[in-house]
Amino acid sequence: MQAHSPASPLLSLPGAVAAEAPDDGVAAHYGDLFREQRALADGTGFVDLSHRGVITVTGEERLSWLHLLLTQHVSELPPGRATEALILSPHGHIEHALYLVDDGETTWAHVEPGTQGELIAYLESMKFFYRVEVTDTTGDYAVVHLPAGSITESPEGVAVRETPHGRDLFLPRAELESFAAANGPAAGVLALEALRVEAHRPRFGLETDHRTIPHELGWLGSAVHLEKGCYRGQETVARVHNLGKPPRRLVFLHLDGSEVKLPGHGAPVRLAADGEEGRQLGFVTTSARHHELGPIALALVKRNVPVDAGLIVDATAAAQEVVVEP
């Protein structure tokens, strides 16, 4: 079991309610989930993601070396350009997801909470003769997320990942409280998760299990470069891409709003026509309450589930939207 980051000092802010795993250590919300969601959707506030792991890679050969290990094309990654990448098993199953940016001297990446130790151990085992240094900087740097459209200025000298979904700052951990005081209001991770589910964006450890391949989650577009080889699991990626038949596919679910309780991770998905005793065809990966859409979820289902079929999660009716084409 990997060590997690220390609990965030922002848990002392008024109204803060601590999140549960895998996001323990930061706030789930600060007393008003929907207000926090609307603020993020409007481009205001920030999200404390200081529980996420942070690693840095330095050395002149860092990008050419990472290029050999990652699913993404990074050998010529320009300074300041954000990208994301995966590390796969020899059989093509997802083992790590990295959210990267290079500042011209250092490659910065944040990863799921507590996974940085295992990731670094793998990277260290692959250094060979390359002149690179891999460092766990989680204790020194905290990830802070600014939503798309935010006018908050990024602090000078701080590495920034800017994407269509917002900016991730690699903020010195000692500056977290002063940043929060100057740039509030804070929004909890539940607000950000609801917007992530709405945007159909997968998250390692929630949308994945031990046998997930990138094709099932729609990660080919953003985290996998199909024109490069030379990485572990590439043969599986190419074969499934050419055949076009991943065993499962990610779907977006609109859940019946009359149910009070959201389905948990792993809740079974079945055909509505078969009822609660029908054969399980998939499982919920993330569920959320959205300020406009109501209860929503992502789920992983068998590829051959009809795209127009009504589904149920436990006893809750669910209408599906296609994320990954069958």
Rank of each mutant, 00 (worst) to 15 (best):
D140F: 06
L66R: 04
H51D: 11
V132K: 04
E95V: 01
Y99K: 02
L66N: 07
L98A: 04
H96V: 00
A82C: 12
L68V: 03
G117Q: 10
V111P: 05
H96E: 04
L77G: 13
P113C: 06
L98M: 11
G92N: 00
S64Y: 01
Q72I: 06
P90S: 01
Y141H: 15
A85I: 03
H73P: 02
D140A: 14
A121S: 13
G117W: 01
D136F: 06
V57Y: 09
A85K: 08
E112I: 03
R131G: 07
H73C: 10
T58G: 13
D102K: 12
Y130V: 07
E84L: 02
M126G: 09
A82G: 12
P113R: 09
L69M: 08
T138H: 09
E60R: 09
T58S: 13
S89H: 02
H96C: 00
H51G: 06
I94M: 05
T107Y: 11
D102L: 15
G80D: 10
L98K: 06
E84R: 01
W65G: 07
Y130W: 14
L100K: 11
M126K: 14
R81V: 14
Y99L: 08
L86K: 04
L49S: 03
A121K: 09
L146Q: 05
D102Y: 12
E112V: 07
Y122M: 13
T138G: 08
S89V: 02
P78W: 08
V144R: 13
E61C: 00
P79E: 10
G117I: 01
W65Q: 05
I120Y: 02
V111H: 07
G80R: 10
D136R: 07
T115G: 00
L77A: 14
Q116Y: 00
S125D: 10
T71I: 08
S64E: 10
Y122C: 04
G117F: 00
T83L: 12
H51A: 07
G59E: 03
E105S: 15
A85T: 11
T135A: 15
V54L: 04
E84F: 00
R131D: 14
L68C: 08
K127D: 10
D103T: 14
P79D: 08
P78S: 12
E60K: 09
Q72A: 12
V143K: 07
E118L: 03
L77W: 10
S125T: 10
I55M: 12
I87A: 06
F128V: 14
L88E: 07
T107A: 15
T137D: 15
E95L: 12
I120E: 04
T115C: 00
D136V: 04
E76C: 10
G139M: 08
G139H: 09
E84V: 05
W108S: 13
S50E: 04
S125F: 10
L119R: 02
H73I: 01
T56A: 11
S89Q: 03
E124I: 08
A97V: 00
P79K: 11
Y130T: 15
H96L: 01
V54C: 07
I120D: 03
